[in-house]
């Protein structure tokens, strides 16, 4: 006889595993600190690259002015200004990244809790029937 409860449970779990579960299981492989740390490292690289591209475009945009005033301008002050903007940009972007990935980790944890609860339920059903067939 087919155990309807077992089939429903297994179908639900299989559907979760094929969809959202894939992403959540990939997240759950890491400890919270490791996962967020890894994502923040990626964010740091991306933010630095983007800022560098922005600065390059800005310099190219004002290339003629830079060439004319290169020997008169205070390069140290200019570099400090760029560095300050970089730090601000990085801090804001990292904060946003932290918030996003911390939320994703806790959201994945909540979903996986329900999934493991269903696994436990399924295990109890198997132990109760002593049969591996649905």
């Amino acid at each position: 006889m087919i155990d309807e409860e077992k089939v429903i449970l297994m179908t639900r779990m299989a559907s979760y595993e094929a969809g959202e579960g894939k992403k959540n299981l990939a997240i759950w492989r890491f400890f919270r600190g490791d996962y967020i740390g890894l994502q923040l490292l990626g964010s740091f690289i991306c933010a630095t690259l983007s800022f560098a591209l922005g600065v390059a475009l800005y310099v190219y945009y004002n290339f003629e002015d830079f060439m004319e005033n290169l020997y008169e301008m205070d390069i140290l002050e200019f570099a400090k200004g760029i560095a300050a903007k970089y730090v601000w940009f990085l801090v804001i972007y990292m904060l946003i990244s932290y918030a996003v990935f911390a939320y994703r980790y806790s959201h994945a944890r909540g979903n996986l809790k329900a999934y493991y609860g269903n696994l436990k339920k399924l295990s109890k059903i198997y132990k109760g029937t002593g049969n591996s067939k649905p």
């Binding site: 690259l49 983007s50 591209l53 475009l57 990244s97």
Partner: peptide, 17 residues
């Protein structure tokens, strides 16, 4: 150059999320 930079920045800052 401009199109490539805009697409790259769009991906690096936003689409990866």
């Amino acid at each position: 150059v401009i199109v490539g930079v805009v697409y790259l920045v769009l991906y690096l800052l936003y689409l990866r999320f």
